[in-house]
Design a protein around this nucleic acid. Sequence first.
DNA 1: TGTACATCAGTGAACGCGCGTTCACTGATGTAC
DNA 2: TGTACATCAGTGAACGCGCGTTCACTGATGTAC
Lengths: 212, 212
Amino acid sequence: MSPEARPIADLSGRRLGARALAKRRRIMDVTRSLLAERGLRELRVADIARSVVTSPATFYQYFSDVEDVVLQLAAEANEELPALIELFEGDWRGAEGHRRSRDVAAFFMAYWVDHGPVLRVRNLAADEGDERFMALRRAAMEPILDAMVALMQRSGSVGSSPWIQPQSAALAMSAILDRLAAYQSVVDYGGVSSDDLVDTSAQILRRTLTGT
Amino acid sequence: MSPEARPIADLSGRRLGARALAKRRRIMDVTRSLLAERGLRELRVADIARSVVTSPATFYQYFSDVEDVVLQLAAEANEELPALIELFEGDWRGAEGHRRSRDVAAFFMAYWVDHGPVLRVRNLAADEGDERFMALRRAAMEPILDAMVALMQRSGSVGSSPWIQPQSAALAMSAILDRLAAYQSVVDYGGVSSDDLVDTSAQILRRTLTGT
DNA sequence: TGTACATCAGTGAACGCGCGTTCACTGATGTAC
DNA sequence: TGTACATCAGTGAACGCGCGTTCACTGATGTAC
């Protein structure tokens, strides 16, 4: 959704002009980069205000606390996901299937390299039971899981083993894809390269979803 | 390692008597449960001291900060892992293989239910680049990854596909197992039960490691 | 085009609180003889 | 068994700092006529 379609408001509900929108944007960008360089634990409203070179009072005009900013950043990250869904549609047989599975894995790798700091906080908060972050993660995951399940059904892989249950398999595949970027840095392990990781994950994904 | 083998000392290096050991233990236990009920972000030295009903000064006798306690807790969690390694050894063909893969998945589910709050913090900190937590995670993962790779080699699954590289496949399997408990609560998704999740993950694990 | 007014946007400065941290001390336990 | 001394363990109280948060205000921008 673009700002035109759903006008962004400040915390008192007032619609924002161009100047305010830019300030809000800047606060979000700065939060993102501070989150990347220090951890969540070291991130305070005062730090953000200092980095933006503004007063803390300005921060509170747009966000209620640090988590609120991260929440908005996570919502933005969600907006990139529709492009991914298309990859699951269409033919996954043969060379086409290899290509698509590879694209999916590569997408996730890039997505996490880009949004890792924000997604990590989202996942931690969701795992700890924060409802707002759980909703956001659910919104991100459900279409992907659905697309995977649909593919399994289409390709007849469902029922190929009595123990494989499509929704669970989709969750398992999500797990692999979500950790792809993280394990890139566990690297040195046996000399795995980022490409190996992507190729192998793609292969496991393709096999699991198409049953071949 | 037992306390006898490697006597635990306070921060000034003094060996601890029974009374001190008990206090230290209590601080760790309280930290663990506070971590489970609130998040890491809401966890302060003052909170811990209050819960233990002691002075903050006592806390500092044993730990340098909150993260230090979590680090010790994560180290303890590592001590439970050798039991897991055995499951990878031996025969993974036929019914035996089904049983072993199921046991591995069930082990991880239980392990994360037990140590989830600590392991989540460990992973976040490691992902954010904290070296101490990275070392701890590596120590936990390496034996498991090695056992998986050995199994793949033994069972001849290596080379079954030119795209599957054993170290990468082992990392992918770790990802599934590490997220098992987390996705239990994404549940409601298509009515997946905890058992489905374990069974399906076990199946994917077995197939990937044995190539059947 | 100019002027007056309304609303938007930003902030300086202040407040109080609670946290992290330490010091100097007391009380508990162990050990030597 | 008793006494003296050494070490271990625990803590009350205090300090200062920096954070979160808000208020009352100023300046910037938009709009009507």
